[in-house]
Design a protein around this nucleic acid. Structure first.
Lengths: 211, 211
DNA sequence: GTGTGTGAAAGTATTCACAGCC
DNA sequence: GGCTGTGAATACTTTCACACAC
């Protein structure tokens, strides 16, 4: 069976785990390890060996019975599973503290994410270097998206303008949005949205602290 | 049956949804709405009415049959469910761009989270105002935690020192950690850990973009 | 009539346990 | 012997559908 052939039925809970496996494997690779068993990897990431084998089984057979997984090979396969065997074009909209902090994160390029530009509405930061070439004015958002084929818009604007900016980005053809602004945003159907939300995270901690 | 009495068996998937319900209800309250049905709320947050009723049923009976929910009352009950009927003491460790961005977020206090201090290892920022009173040196971390009864440590340090800082905070008695540093951290058993991870979020988007 | 609260059913996800291969 | 890959079993979550209260 060809690897990567069953993507239609991958449980959504599997996807974030794959990224953890990948990260841990890259760490092990950097330490010079060449082989790993599902048991060892499970211990490292804090899960059950069967979980790892099941997760991988949705994509193919990557191990050797009686031996385990060859790390270099498994990393390659996981990258294919996650769509990291190609590169993706991203922009950050909102060049405040948060946007700048994200732009400075070294690890974008390492996994094949090209941060092409930052956008900001405030005249005073236009043209300034915030870690990824000059900051562009928001008026140029649609044109830039269309000209560069942007895959991911990372939104770090103030709450008040976030939904409007997201609508504009999606209308201009951006197929996925990662929203850090403190609102519950929504996008129309074919687009993909993920939210990172400090307030929700704090409330979850509060719940479990209170139990 | 007393509200809030069944917390032992609340599905973990329910907890983040409660925080969304609460946010949406607060929005509606601000708009002057006084009553809402599970159907209306479900439409607003993009879920199923039965889901909302089931989620609430883990905590008690908050609605009126044939009518719906009285918004003021439901907000109060949800706050109790989430442990937001009291206040929590938080600190931010790491006063870089990200830490400062989080500190400036107005919405901490609004939900009962008191941000008591920021910590940083770098001498150059000690004492500077980053939005929450002066930044303190990391040497004072343990003493401050013990003296002020810190409930939540928000970690925005560089990757290299994050695990060590988390270990120190937990050892000093912090029962919960929200980690923004780009590593997969771990904490010893009774402590609670949540991770916010740009790299994982990007990989999840990559996976679905690729499908 | 309307809409909640909740058992029961359907749908997902995780874990077990073992056949099969190294 | 050791470890993978996977059907079967278990556990968990969501959705349905209806008795009951307003």
């Amino acid at each position: 069976m060809p690897a990567n052939s069953k993507k239609h039925s991958v449980p959504s809970a599997t996807v974030p785990r794959l990224s953890q496996y990948l990260r841990k494997l890259q760490e092990m690779q950097a330490r010079g390890t060449t082989t790993v068993s599902s048991r060892q990897l499970a211990e490292e990431v804090g899960t059950n060996p069967a979980q790892i084998r099941k997760d991988l089984s949705y994509f193919g057979e990557f191990g050797i019975r009686g031996v385990g997984y060859e790390i270099d090979h498994l990393i390659d396969e996981l990258k294919k599973c996650l769509g990291l065997d190609r590169s993706w074009n991203a922009i950050i909209i909102g060049s405040g503290k948060l946007g700048t902090a994200l732009a400075r994160y070294r690890g974008f390029e390492k996994q094949g994410f090209n941060l092409l530009a930052m956008f900001d509405a405030s005249k005073s930061v236009i043209g300034k270097n915030r870690g990824v070439g000059p900051v562009l004015p928001t008026d140029q958002l649609e044109q830039f998206i269309r000209e560069h084929g942007i895959d991911i818009a990372i939104v770090t604007t103030p709450a008040g303008v976030a939904q409007n900016i997201i609508d504009r980005a999606v209308a201009a053809g951006v197929p996925s949005v990662l929203n850090f602004a403190p609102i519950r945003a929504h996008v129309d159907k074919p687009a993909i949205l993920r939210q990172v939300d400090l307030s929700t995270e704090l409330m979850i901690l509060s719940f479990y602290l209170n139990s």
